[in-house]
């Protein structure tokens, strides 16, 4: 979903969904990333469910929109509505909670089935400040991530560890994906066309519109 612009002056817009069981620290993670605050009484934002971040990576502007999702089990079935058209997914589990890792595995299966390889997956073990209570082994998690083509990260929202790296890495991967996409579609006019990928438009027939003469230069 890269909004095209003229020449190098282009901006990428990415949608990233946050998935994971309730209480694994999704909200803390994203608040730490966007506001650099943790459990702070001075958090100014009204909500932590939709946050944006502007980045500059290798001279390219990137707009990141982070969509939090409801983690309760009863809302699991609504997942597809949330992750539709997203460029990346951050799957969070709590390293002290074996169950939450199992949930992540379910999500991965579902995402791969529904979206294929178009989506960049990040598996995130949060709360590494509680390493003494660890119930998910590092080895197992990393091996699993590799087996499904995802990257694995260790983070702590409390200590502000690994979060910046996680999102930077994810952005770079999404940019690579987007660039590969552009190359596939050819360059020029289709740059902007890719920004409409979210909707089911058939854009191979621009003449469908009753354009009474296209550009004035033509």
């Amino acid at each position: 979903m890269a909004a095209g612009g003229a020449g190098s002056n282009k901006t990428y817009s990415f949608k990233v969904v946050l998935l994971g069981e309730g209480c694994v620290g999704k909200t803390s993670l994203v608040l730490r990333y966007c506001e650099n605050k943790f459990n702070d009484k001075h958090i100014t934002t009204l909500q932590a469910s939709f946050l944006t971040k502007k980045l500059n990576i290798a001279g390219k502007r990137v707009n990141l929109a982070i969509w939090d999702t409801a983690g309760q089990e009863r809302f699991h079935a609504l997942g597809p509505i949330y992750y539709r058209d997203s460029n990346g997914a951050v799957l969070v589990y709590d390293i002290t909670d074996e169950d939450s890792f199992q949930k992540v595995k379910n999500w991965v299966k579902e995402l791969r089935k529904m979206l294929g390889n178009e989506i960049c997956l990040c598996i995130v073990g949060n709360k590494i400040d509680l390493d003494k209570d660890r119930h998910v082994s590092v080895d197992e998690a990393e091996r699993y991530a590799e087996s499904v083509g995802a990257k694995h990260y260790h983070t702590s929202a409390k200590l502000n560890k690994g979060i910046e790296e996680l999102f930077l890495d994810l952005c770079k991967r999404m940019m690579e994906n987007a660039q590969a996409d552009e190359r596939l579609k050819g360059n020029g006019s289709s740059q902007s066309a890719s920004s409409w990928r979210g909707v089911q438009i058939v854009d191979d027939d621009p003449q469908a519109t009753p354009a009474g003469g296209c550009c004035s230069s033509g």
Partner: peptide, 23 residues
């Protein structure tokens, strides 16, 4: 819906050229 969306898209494409990418 498809017609309207096509129209939007064509319009955006044309405007993009006109405004030199000022989104």
């Amino acid at each position: 819906s498809e017609c309207v969306q096509d129209f939007y898209q064509n319009m955006v494409d044309r405007l993009m050229t006109h405004f030199k990418g000022s989104s």
